[in-house]
Amino acid sequence: MTASTRFLEPFRPALAAALATAALAVAVLPVGAATQSYSYRVELAGTAKKRHAHAGNVDWECRGKYCIASARGGNVSVRGCRELASQVGRVVSYRSEIKHLGGDQIDECNAVLASDTSPPKGAPGKAAGLAATAARPDSPPRVTTEELTFTGVHNWSPVK
């Protein structure tokens, strides 16, 4: 077994059943009625909180840090990812055989977990310090990033 397929080991019984079901389905379906089905693989940041999940209209099987599923189309969506993350935990990668979510989409997916808590509100202040600077080794780890900025076109009256 290669490293790339080792993660499938815990799923061996489920995969065998799925393959048998798929073989039967292919055998009984009329020619041309079969729609392309793709396998999905999701890697989590930690151990899945549950072994079975229904998210994105798909049934997922989770073992350890991985969840797998099979569905038609091969499309991936932030919405489906969010539904899964809210059930099994933080998602690291979310992909089908042909598509995958990008980095910002993964962040957007995981944001659903952050919104479950009440994060501290940011205190207003003057923005400064645009260069990334590492903290001293003896202080808690910290870094300052460049500024995130957006200027839209809506005009507002001054806030009192």
């Binding site: 940011g122 923005a127 400064a128 310090g129 645009l130 808690p140 780890p141 910290r142 870094v143 300052t144 990033t145 460049e146 500024e147 995130l148 900025t149 957006f150 200027t151 839209g152 076109v153 809506h154 005009n155 507002w156």
Partner: peptide, 16 residues
């Protein structure tokens, strides 16, 4: 362990 990232943010002109 918690790693803190400090990020300046400046947004304006957003819709209501």
């Amino acid at each position: 362990e918690i790693f803190t990232i400090e990020t300046p943010v400046s947004v304006k002109g957003l819709p209501p």
